[in-house]
């Protein structure tokens, strides 16, 4: 308890506990809410707070990318998708709310985290690409990304291009009779009528 009090009085500890409590509550709302709008708003604000974690951890560039890509692009895409479906009404789903879902979810998440976190506690772990002293985070990230991770970076760029084309083709089906063209025809009809009147 004294340890906790000592932690929470430092600025880093206070920010950590505040952000973690808020993200857990917001993501719980995201997972449990019946309303799409509430779930999406909670998800967006949780992502903003997660970028706060990145800023505490000194990963400034990652935090900015999180804000731009997740909160900016992904949530905008979700809100566009939400407009296709009826978002104001509560969604009806027969959720399996049994205790076994929570127990199984918790246990399998715990097992996954243990599997992936166990090698970290090895003593002989060494930094593969160490951070440089006196160099900003964005500069450091850029140097590593464009030298050591150049091929994965280009592959990710191709993947994003493929995803963009797939999104356009999937969502753009049956859009050949466009709304604006039919509107133009209406306008032309209107003009013709007025000419006839004259």
């Amino acid at each position: 308890m004294e340890n906790f009090l000592a932690q929470i009085t430092t600025i880093e500890g206070f920010a950590f506990y505040l952000f973690s409590a808020l993200t857990i509550v917001l993501f719980w709302i995201t997972v449990m809410s019946k309303n799409v709008l509430y779930a999406m708003t909670a998800l967006a604000s949780g992502m903003v707070l997660i970028s706060g974690f990145f800023f505490i951890l000194g990963a400034d560039f990652l935090g900015v990318v999180q804000l731009i890509v997740y909160v900016g692009a992904v949530m905008a895409l979700y809100s566009f998708a939400m407009m296709f479906f009826d978002a104001t009404r509560n969604i009806k789903e027969n959720n399996t709310n049994s205790a076994i879902v929570f127990v199984l979810g918790g246990l399998s998440a715990l097992a996954l985290v243990l599997i992936f976190a166990a090698p970290i506690h090895n003593e002989s772990i060494q930094a593969l690409y160490p951070m440089h002293e006196g160099v900003g985070n964005a500069q450091d990230v850029g140097i590593i990304l464009f030298t050591k991770y150049l091929i994965p970076f280009e592959v990710a760029a191709v993947m994003l291009l493929v995803a963009m084309i797939a999104g356009i083709i999937l969502a753009g089906k049956k859009m050949d009779n466009s709304l604006t063209e039919s509107m133009d025809e209406d306008v032309e009809d209107e003009i013709m009528k007025r000419k006839d009147l004259k």
Binding site: F27, E93, F102, L104, G105, G106, A109, L112
Partner: peptide, 12 residues
């Protein structure tokens, strides 16, 4: 947070 997400995937 991961287990919250996993519970969501299982029950949604």
């Amino acid at each position: 947070l991961f287990s919250i997400g996993l519970v969501g995937v299982l029950r949604r």
